[in-house]
């Protein structure tokens, strides 16, 4: 329809056009408006689990990555109150796992860390959970360090939707939730994951890492040392970078 382009939502008072079928996140990204997010990646089905993209739509809370855009929506996004909520959610993600940034290969390239920077997070605030989680180093070229997993399921979806495989699943309930591997042994080495797979590279934190490639880019020159996570065209930068790390 011709009038499709005329449809608008308002984000923080700014008119944002949208097409039918787009979510609030889709419309925002297309308009170069940043809504913090971790479990969302354009091209994969929306998930709505991390809740960092929570916004208030006409005063009611909603996840912008799953909420369809529709006319009449007035959306609060970049407000001090919402960013405070997002900071708390980011802190929750930090304290429920074991995130030791200085010793993590992903530091500087980690989206969780970058969102922490973006939201002005200076500490974990909540008491640490110190969970015990298993490391799977069985695979020749990949390592799965569950200490850093944030349950975003990007690898789960990338494997199914991009790679045409089904390597990962989330198991367990509540704080016992954890990432498992779909092989008879439950080990990565017995799965059909390959280094070329999207699932091997999509992890926003340091839970899935490529072996034999450590510290090739010095700290200080990594993605989020140079860019802000709020630059909305970063997805391609990050993926290109991690997939062709030798270049």
């Amino acid at each position: 329809m011709n009038n499709n382009a005329d449809k608008i939502i308002k984000i923080d008072g700014v008119d944002v056009p949208f097409k039918d079928g787009q979510t609030i996140m889709d419309a925002a990204l297309a308009a170069d408006i940043y809504i913090p997010h971790l479990c969302h990646k354009p091209g994969l089905s929306p998930h709505g689990s991390c809740k960092l993209c929570t916004v208030d739509v006409n005063g009611r809370p909603a996840s912008s990555c799953t909420m369809p855009a529709s006319e009449g929506q007035e959306i609060a996004n970049n407000t001090p109150a919402l960013n405070e909520v997002r900071k708390s959610i980011t802190q929750m993600l930090f304290i429920e796992g074991n995130h030791l940034c200085p010793s993590c290969e992903k530091t500087g390239d980690c989206t969780l860390q970058a969102i922490g920077y973006h939201l002005g997070m200076l500490d974990g605030h909540f008491p640490q959970f110190y969970p015990r989680r298993e490391v799977d180093a069985s695979h020749g070229s990949l390592v799965l360090d569950r200490d850093r997993c944030i349950m975003c399921e990007l690898c789960v979806r990338a494997s199914r939707e991009c790679d045409g495989k089904n390597v990962f699943t989330i198991s367990g309930r509540g704080t016992n939730r954890h990432l498992i591997v779909n092989s008879d042994s439950g080990k990565l080495v017995d799965s059909d994951i390959e280094l070329e797979d999207m699932a091997a590279h999509i992890c926003p934190v340091g839970a899935i890492l490529i072996k034999d490639h450590g510290y090739e880019v010095p700290i200080g020159r990594r993605t989020f040392d140079i860019h802000s996570v709020a630059e909305t065209d970063l997805d391609d930068v990050i993926l290109t970078k991690v997939r062709h790390h030798d270049e």
């Binding site: 709505g48 689990s49 991390c50 809740k51 960092l52 959610i89 929750m92 993600l93 304290i95 429920e96 909540f126 008491p127 959970f129 349950m151 367990g172 309930r173 509540g174 704080t175 016992n176 939730r177």
Partner: peptide
């Protein structure tokens, strides 16, 4: 005990 753990606020918040 009963939180499914899908979303961050409930998974972490109910334990907090």
């Amino acid at each position: 005990h009963e939180s499914c753990g899908f979303c961050t606020p409930c998974r972490v918040g109910t334990t907090l």
